[in-house]
């Protein structure tokens, strides 16, 4: 592993169908295994990845996930995943983040659930301008 400044891109996956969701899950899982994350952390984050990747397929049609190895003070390693799409975007983020809110007849646990499953969660979106969500998990 390279000694990185702050972030080090590991891989990028184009997401446009349900099989890509599985691929994203597998890649993140094997990266976390190698980095030494616990099985519980792997399960939480892979579940969050699954929710966010599905959001791309369902709402935007296509997008991509980029994964980065990041480092905090004292070399504490972490994983950052960025989900980016050029889809319709979210007009009211607060509403979209609410548990149970859905525009696709789902349970509405995707965004609210993913936020609860990781250490850090950041969302940026505007109508017609796509959505970018990043999640971070520290070892």
């Amino acid at each position: 592993m390279k000694s990185s400044e702050n972030s080090n891109e590991c891989f990028e996956i184009l997401i446009s169908n349900y099989e890509d969701i599985i691929l994203a899950r597998q890649k993140v899982k094997s990266f976390m295994q190698k980095t030494g994350f616990s099985v519980l952390a792997q399960t939480r984050i892979v579940t969050a990845v699954s929710e966010l990747a599905r959001n791309i397929v369902v709402h935007a049609g296509q997008g991509k996930m980029s994964a980065y190895q990041i480092t905090k003070k004292r070399n504490r390693p972490g994983l950052k995943c960025v989900f980016k799409d050029q889809g319709p975007g979210i007009s009211n983020i607060d509403e979209a983040m609410k548990e149970g809110f859905s525009t696709s007849n789902s349970l509405g646990l995707g965004l609210s659930g993913a936020r609860k499953l990781c250490n850090e969660f950041h969302i940026e979106s505007a109508e017609k301008k796509g959505t970018t969500i990043s999640i971070v998990e520290w070892l």
């Binding site: 099985v39 519980l40 939480r44 548990e99 349970l107 609860k116």
Partner: peptide, 14 residues
């Protein structure tokens, strides 16, 4: 269901 799966499901709110 594995314990990690159960913990995650509850945290997810499902």
């Amino acid at each position: 269901m594995k314990k990690e799966v159960v913990l995650t499901l509850i945290q997810l709110g499902l």
